[in-house]
Design a protein around this nucleic acid. Structure first.
Lengths: 202, 202
DNA sequence: GTCTATACTCTGATAGAC
DNA sequence: GTCTATCAGAGTATAGAC
């Protein structure tokens, strides 16, 4: 349902998307079933299909919502700010996303693993544009000697990889650390150290 | 087929596993179908099921083969070697795995994303044991002042995250970089810099 | 060992009563 | 808006001929 009108439509659409996020993020698109989603949402399958015309449509709605907000932290990187502080703030915001929205991270990971069939356009369009723009900002900072020189695109990849790992591989991280650990707090301190040593201008 | 006896059985089992790796690594367990696998393998579906008793069995055989070899690079980390050189060698071998066996990396990623239903035992058993052991080695190196002090477990996570990202998110990396880039060569140089700056004893 | 045919279940989607 | 009933197709697995 692209434009819910009544309050009950609004509420049910939200409930369905919430349940679908649960299921799609764990099983991927093909692995998820409408039965599972309807079950988690507490609705019947036909009722679910009253709100969304198809399984595709539910998945698409989730991805669109995700893409709208997922890039905000990178957009917020301010060319006029202090280089190291700006990048550290980006790392922190990205790690917070992993901690607070792990299902969204896994939904995205599933989509990319499957070859990004439904979001390739956004990736090589909006995302690439944004990354190129921010990479140019970092490039400038490096030229001005305010940041150690590293390949900006791979710097951005490393921030994605290191922060998303704690959401996408959460069960592995927890199993290997054992009990008595707070993965995200520890990761926060570690990544602070890592990017400081990597980027502080010599 | 756990123990193939004839040459033809050997060959067909291998062909099936090769095809299954293709499909499972892209679609995950539930998303993959025996039809797809049989098609890629060039066999009929019943014939495939002559060699493996079920879809589960094919998947299990793949994961077991993976786990047997996936940890070798970490096992090879030598407590008697030079700390920084040993870790750099581990990073290099791990990145080579991502470059040369990206499907294996994605198979593993899919399994973890789904909550590791089939390999949780190996993760919290053999894997945790090995990681704890090597983390202790690193800890010793740090105490001796031969390596900058960082949390060893998270250091290992960072190596996994940074190297596997180039396999698991390959399509995103290539789309964002655009043409005229060699992701793995560039990543090799970047990760060399990153871990050198992070770990070189001050 | 390999194939065709098929049994049976699951899944996405629709019809139509209320 | 929501439900029961149901369809058509896909999916795993088996039977049995060759």
């Amino acid at each position: 349902m692209t434009k819910p009108r009544t309050r009950i439509q609004e509420k049910n659409s939200a409930t369905i998307l919430e349940a679908a996020l649960d299921v799609f993020s764990k099983q991927g698109f093909r692995g998820a079933t409408l039965d599972q989603i309807a079950d988690v949402a507490g609705l019947s399958k036909p009722n679910l299909l009253y709100y969304f015309p198809s399984k595709e449509a539910v998945h698409k709605a989730l991805l669109e919502r995700l893409l709208r907000t997922w890039l905000d932290p990178l957009r917020a990187l301010d060319p006029k700010g202090d280089p190291l502080a700006e990048i550290m703030a980006y790392v922190r915001r990205k790690l917070e996303l992993s901690r607070d929205y792990p299902r969204e991270s896994r939904l995205f990971a599933n989509e990319i693993l499957q070859g990004a069939p439904r979001i390739m356009e956004a990736i090589s369009g909006d995302l690439k544009t944004l990354v190129d723009e921010k990479a140019a900002v970092m490039e400038r900072w490096m030229s001005e000697g305010r940041l150690a020189r590293v390949p900006p695109h791979h710097l951005i990849f490393s921030i994605w990889a290191l922060t998303q790992h704690y959401a996408d591989f959460d069960v592995q991280v927890r199993a290997v650390l054992g009990t008595g650990h707070d993965p995200f707090t520890e990761a926060g301190a570690f990544l602070e150290t890592l990017f400081d040593r990597l980027l502080r201008a010599a």
